[in-house]
Protein backbone atom coordinates (compact mmCIF):
# COMPACT_ATOMS: atom_id res chain seq x y z
CA UNK A 1 0.00 0.00 0.00
CA UNK A 2 1.39 3.34 -1.05
CA UNK A 3 0.09 6.77 -0.02
CA UNK A 4 -1.20 9.29 -2.55
CA UNK A 5 1.45 11.76 -3.69
CA UNK A 6 2.09 14.68 -1.38
CA UNK A 7 4.56 17.49 -0.89
CA UNK A 8 6.99 16.93 1.99
CA UNK A 9 8.18 19.88 4.06
CA UNK A 10 10.74 19.31 6.81
CA UNK A 11 10.79 22.20 9.29
CA UNK A 12 13.47 23.13 11.80
CA UNK A 13 11.46 25.23 14.26
CA UNK A 14 7.94 25.66 15.64
CA UNK A 15 7.76 29.01 13.81
CA UNK A 16 8.55 27.33 10.47
CA UNK A 17 5.94 24.67 11.20
CA UNK A 18 3.30 27.30 11.95
CA UNK A 19 4.20 29.21 8.77
CA UNK A 20 3.81 26.03 6.70
CA UNK A 21 0.46 25.27 8.37
CA UNK A 22 -0.72 28.85 7.77
CA UNK A 23 0.25 28.59 4.11
CA UNK A 24 -1.34 25.22 3.39
CA UNK A 25 -4.31 25.26 5.78
CA UNK A 26 -6.47 22.15 5.83
CA UNK A 27 -4.49 20.60 2.96
CA UNK A 28 -1.58 20.04 5.35
CA UNK A 29 -1.06 17.44 8.06
CA UNK A 30 1.63 17.44 10.70
CA UNK A 31 3.97 14.43 10.68
CA UNK A 32 5.81 13.47 13.87
CA UNK A 33 6.37 9.73 14.44
CA UNK A 34 3.86 8.98 11.71
CA UNK A 35 2.55 5.80 13.31
CA UNK A 36 -1.06 6.94 13.27
CA UNK A 37 -0.95 9.13 10.16
CA UNK A 38 1.05 6.96 7.73
CA UNK A 39 -1.18 3.87 8.16
CA UNK A 40 -4.21 6.06 7.37
CA UNK A 41 -2.43 7.52 4.34
CA UNK A 42 -1.47 4.08 3.08
CA UNK A 43 -5.15 3.08 3.24
CA UNK A 44 -5.97 6.42 1.54
CA UNK A 45 -8.26 7.27 4.43
CA UNK A 46 -6.14 10.39 4.82
CA UNK A 47 -5.00 12.17 1.66
CA UNK A 48 -3.10 15.30 2.73
CA UNK A 49 -1.48 17.38 0.00
CA UNK A 50 1.34 18.53 2.23
CA UNK A 51 3.12 16.79 5.12
CA UNK A 52 4.88 19.08 7.58
CA UNK A 53 7.52 16.95 9.30
CA UNK A 54 8.19 18.38 12.76
CA UNK A 55 10.40 15.52 13.97
CA UNK A 56 13.57 17.51 13.24
CA UNK A 57 12.62 20.43 15.50
CA UNK A 58 15.16 20.46 18.34
CA UNK A 59 14.02 20.64 21.95
CA UNK A 60 10.58 19.05 21.50
CA UNK A 61 11.39 16.00 23.65
CA UNK A 62 11.60 16.56 27.41
CA UNK A 63 9.95 15.81 30.74
CA UNK A 64 10.44 18.36 33.51
CA UNK A 65 8.78 19.65 36.69
CA UNK A 66 7.73 23.28 36.61
CA UNK A 67 6.65 25.29 39.67
CA UNK A 68 6.65 24.32 43.34
CA UNK A 69 4.45 22.56 45.85
CA UNK A 70 0.77 22.10 45.07
CA UNK A 71 1.04 24.18 41.88
CA UNK A 72 3.85 22.12 40.38
CA UNK A 73 3.12 20.41 37.08
CA UNK A 74 4.96 17.93 34.93
CA UNK A 75 5.58 19.38 31.46
CA UNK A 76 6.13 16.92 28.62
CA UNK A 77 7.36 18.03 25.22
CA UNK A 78 5.03 17.01 22.39
CA UNK A 79 7.90 15.36 20.54
CA UNK A 80 8.65 12.95 23.40
CA UNK A 81 8.56 9.46 21.97
CA UNK A 82 6.78 6.69 23.87
CA UNK A 83 10.00 4.77 24.57
CA UNK A 84 11.59 7.93 25.98
CA UNK A 85 8.61 8.60 28.26
CA UNK A 86 8.55 4.94 29.32
CA UNK A 87 12.11 5.21 30.67
CA UNK A 88 12.14 8.83 31.84
CA UNK A 89 13.24 9.07 35.48
CA UNK A 90 11.38 12.34 36.17
CA UNK A 91 8.16 10.93 34.74
CA UNK A 92 8.55 7.68 36.70
CA UNK A 93 8.96 9.59 39.97
CA UNK A 94 6.45 12.39 39.46
CA UNK A 95 3.63 10.91 37.38
CA UNK A 96 4.24 7.13 37.19
CA UNK A 97 0.92 6.31 35.46
CA UNK A 98 2.15 8.00 32.29
CA UNK A 99 5.44 6.11 31.68
CA UNK A 100 3.70 2.84 32.60
CA UNK A 101 1.04 3.45 29.95
CA UNK A 102 3.64 4.66 27.42
CA UNK A 103 5.24 1.22 27.78
CA UNK A 104 1.95 -0.47 26.81
CA UNK A 105 1.44 1.36 23.51
CA UNK A 106 1.74 -0.93 20.49
CA UNK A 107 5.08 -2.74 20.53
CA UNK A 108 8.74 -1.68 20.91
CA UNK A 109 9.08 -0.62 17.26
CA UNK A 110 5.94 1.53 17.51
CA UNK A 111 7.14 3.06 20.78
CA UNK A 112 10.43 3.99 19.12
CA UNK A 113 8.56 6.24 16.67
CA UNK A 114 5.25 7.42 18.17
CA UNK A 115 5.08 10.69 20.13
CA UNK A 116 2.79 11.88 22.92
CA UNK A 117 1.90 15.00 20.91
CA UNK A 118 0.99 12.88 17.91
CA UNK A 119 -1.31 10.52 19.78
CA UNK A 120 -2.90 13.53 21.50
CA UNK A 121 -3.59 15.34 18.21
CA UNK A 122 -4.79 12.16 16.49
CA UNK A 123 -7.77 11.70 18.89
CA UNK A 124 -8.36 8.00 18.50
CA UNK A 125 -10.78 6.97 21.29
CA UNK A 126 -8.86 3.68 21.67
CA UNK A 127 -5.52 5.36 22.42
CA UNK A 128 -3.70 4.51 25.64
CA UNK A 129 -1.88 7.75 26.43
CA UNK A 130 -4.86 10.08 25.94
CA UNK A 131 -6.78 7.84 28.36
CA UNK A 132 -4.03 8.28 30.95
CA UNK A 133 -3.83 12.03 30.30
CA UNK A 134 -7.58 12.38 30.73
CA UNK A 135 -7.45 10.58 34.08
CA UNK A 136 -4.57 12.78 35.22
CA UNK A 137 -6.26 16.04 34.24
CA UNK A 138 -4.08 18.89 33.07
CA UNK A 139 -3.84 20.68 29.76
CA UNK A 140 -2.78 20.45 26.15
CA UNK A 141 -0.58 23.40 25.14
CA UNK A 142 -1.20 24.58 21.59
CA UNK A 143 0.80 27.09 19.61
CA UNK A 144 -0.74 28.94 16.71
CA UNK A 145 -0.46 32.23 14.84
CA UNK A 146 -1.95 34.04 17.84
CA UNK A 147 0.51 32.57 20.35
CA UNK A 148 0.14 29.81 22.91
CA UNK A 149 -3.04 28.64 24.60
CA UNK A 150 -3.82 25.84 27.03
CA UNK A 151 -6.87 23.63 26.57
CA UNK A 152 -7.97 21.42 29.49
CA UNK A 153 -7.80 17.74 28.54
CA UNK A 154 -11.50 17.48 29.44
CA UNK A 155 -12.28 19.82 26.52
CA UNK A 156 -9.61 18.78 24.02
CA UNK A 157 -10.96 15.58 22.45
CA UNK A 158 -14.26 16.52 20.82
CA UNK A 159 -15.02 13.54 18.60
CA UNK A 160 -13.66 10.60 16.63
CA UNK A 161 -10.37 11.96 15.22
CA UNK A 162 -11.58 15.48 16.17
CA UNK A 163 -10.08 17.92 18.66
CA UNK A 164 -10.40 21.52 19.84
CA UNK A 165 -7.34 22.44 17.73
CA UNK A 166 -7.46 24.62 14.62
CA UNK A 167 -5.67 23.41 11.49
CA UNK A 168 -3.10 26.20 11.95
CA UNK A 169 -2.17 25.10 15.48
CA UNK A 170 0.43 22.65 16.77
CA UNK A 171 0.48 20.62 19.99
CA UNK A 172 3.72 21.70 21.67
CA UNK A 173 3.40 20.38 25.24
CA UNK A 174 1.30 18.36 27.67
CA UNK A 175 1.00 19.56 31.27
CA UNK A 176 -0.22 17.19 33.99
CA UNK A 177 -0.37 17.46 37.78
CA UNK A 178 2.29 15.66 39.77
CA UNK A 179 0.83 12.60 41.42
CA UNK A 180 4.02 11.44 43.15
CA UNK A 181 3.25 8.57 45.51
CA UNK A 182 -0.54 8.63 44.96
CA UNK A 183 -1.85 5.23 43.87
CA UNK A 184 -2.82 4.64 40.26
CA UNK A 185 -4.03 1.84 38.05
CA UNK A 186 -4.27 1.07 34.35
CA UNK A 187 -6.12 -1.92 32.95
CA UNK A 188 -5.98 -2.63 29.23
CA UNK A 189 -7.88 -5.47 27.60
CA UNK A 190 -6.62 -6.74 24.25
CA UNK A 191 -6.86 -9.97 22.31
CA UNK A 192 -3.36 -9.75 20.82
CA UNK A 193 -0.19 -8.45 22.45
CA UNK A 194 0.38 -5.30 20.41
CA UNK A 195 -3.22 -4.25 19.79
CA UNK A 196 -5.20 -1.20 20.73
CA UNK A 197 -7.34 -1.77 23.80
CA UNK A 198 -10.80 -3.21 23.23
CA UNK A 199 -11.49 -1.25 26.43
CA UNK A 200 -9.05 0.29 28.90
CA UNK A 201 -9.49 2.08 32.23
CA UNK A 202 -7.11 4.49 33.96
CA UNK A 203 -7.58 5.48 37.61
CA UNK A 204 -5.71 8.04 39.69
CA UNK A 205 -6.66 10.44 42.49
CA UNK A 206 -10.38 9.64 42.35
CA UNK A 207 -10.61 10.13 38.60
CA UNK A 208 -11.32 7.40 36.06
CA UNK A 209 -10.91 7.58 32.27
CA UNK A 210 -11.98 4.99 29.70
CA UNK A 211 -10.69 4.10 26.24
CA UNK A 212 -12.91 2.89 23.42
CA UNK A 213 -16.25 3.47 25.17
CA UNK A 214 -17.45 6.19 22.77
CA UNK A 215 -16.30 8.63 20.11
CA UNK A 216 -13.54 9.99 22.35
CA UNK A 217 -11.64 8.87 25.41
CA UNK A 218 -13.98 9.80 28.25
CA UNK A 219 -14.31 10.09 32.01
CA UNK A 220 -16.45 7.68 34.03
CA UNK A 221 -18.24 10.54 35.74
CA UNK A 222 -20.86 8.45 37.57
CA UNK A 223 -18.06 6.38 39.11
CA UNK A 224 -16.13 9.49 40.08
CA UNK A 225 -19.20 11.04 41.73
CA UNK A 226 -19.94 7.86 43.65
CA UNK A 227 -16.34 7.68 44.88
CA UNK A 228 -16.47 11.33 45.94
CA UNK A 229 -19.66 10.57 47.90
CA UNK A 230 -17.83 7.77 49.72
CA UNK A 231 -19.12 4.72 47.86
CA UNK A 232 -16.96 1.58 48.05
CA UNK A 233 -14.97 0.70 44.93
CA UNK A 234 -17.16 -2.21 43.80
CA UNK A 235 -20.29 -0.05 43.98
CA UNK A 236 -18.70 2.92 42.19
CA UNK A 237 -17.13 0.76 39.48
CA UNK A 238 -20.51 -0.79 38.69
CA UNK A 239 -21.51 2.65 37.33
CA UNK A 240 -18.50 3.02 35.02
CA UNK A 241 -20.40 2.49 31.77
CA UNK A 242 -23.13 5.02 32.58
CA UNK A 243 -23.32 7.74 29.96
CA UNK A 244 -21.01 5.91 27.54
CA UNK A 245 -21.88 4.86 23.97
CA UNK A 246 -19.54 2.02 23.02
CA UNK A 247 -19.52 0.71 19.46
CA UNK A 248 -19.94 -2.90 18.44
CA UNK A 249 -17.29 -4.36 16.17
CA UNK A 250 -15.64 -7.67 15.34
CA UNK A 251 -13.85 -7.69 18.71
CA UNK A 252 -16.73 -7.00 21.08
CA UNK A 253 -20.37 -6.00 21.11
CA UNK A 254 -21.54 -2.98 23.09
CA UNK A 255 -22.76 -4.98 26.09
CA UNK A 256 -19.42 -6.76 26.38
CA UNK A 257 -17.61 -3.42 26.26
CA UNK A 258 -19.87 -2.13 29.05
CA UNK A 259 -19.01 -5.22 31.09
CA UNK A 260 -15.30 -4.64 30.46
CA UNK A 261 -15.58 -0.96 31.43
CA UNK A 262 -17.10 -1.90 34.81
CA UNK A 263 -14.64 -4.73 35.42
CA UNK A 264 -11.50 -2.86 34.35
CA UNK A 265 -12.56 0.22 36.32
CA UNK A 266 -12.90 -1.89 39.45
CA UNK A 267 -9.49 -3.47 38.91
CA UNK A 268 -7.83 -0.13 38.17
CA UNK A 269 -9.39 1.46 41.26
CA UNK A 270 -8.35 -1.49 43.43
CA UNK A 271 -4.79 -1.25 42.14
CA UNK A 272 -4.81 2.50 42.78
CA UNK A 273 -6.07 1.91 46.32
CA UNK A 274 -3.39 -0.71 46.94
CA UNK A 275 -6.13 -3.24 47.56
Amino acid sequence: MIPSPFEYVRVGSVEEALAALAEHGEDAKVLAGGHSLLPLMKLRLAVPEVLVDISGIPGMSYVRVEGDGADAVVAIGAGTRHHELERDEVARAEVPLLPHVAGLVGDPQVRHRGTIGGTTAHSDPASDLPTALLALGGTVVLQGPGGRREVPVTEFWTGFFETAMSPDELVVELRVPRTGTLGWGYEKFTRRANDWPIVAAAAVDGRVALANMGGTVLRATATEEALAAGAPIAEAAALADQGTSPVADMHADADYRRHLARLLTRRALETAAGA
Partner: peptide, 15 residues
Protein backbone atom coordinates in the same frame (compact mmCIF):
# COMPACT_ATOMS: atom_id res chain seq x y z
CA UNK B 1 20.07 2.55 16.95
CA UNK B 2 16.35 1.82 17.33
CA UNK B 3 14.28 -0.98 15.79
CA UNK B 4 11.50 0.35 13.55
CA UNK B 5 8.99 -1.09 11.09
CA UNK B 6 10.15 0.20 7.74
CA UNK B 7 6.69 -0.13 6.15
CA UNK B 8 5.58 2.77 8.35
CA UNK B 9 8.50 5.13 7.85
CA UNK B 10 9.01 7.28 4.77
CA UNK B 11 12.43 7.16 3.17
CA UNK B 12 12.55 10.95 3.47
CA UNK B 13 12.05 10.63 7.24
CA UNK B 14 15.30 8.64 7.37
CA UNK B 15 17.30 11.48 5.77
Amino acid sequence: GLSVKSCTVLAVQAA
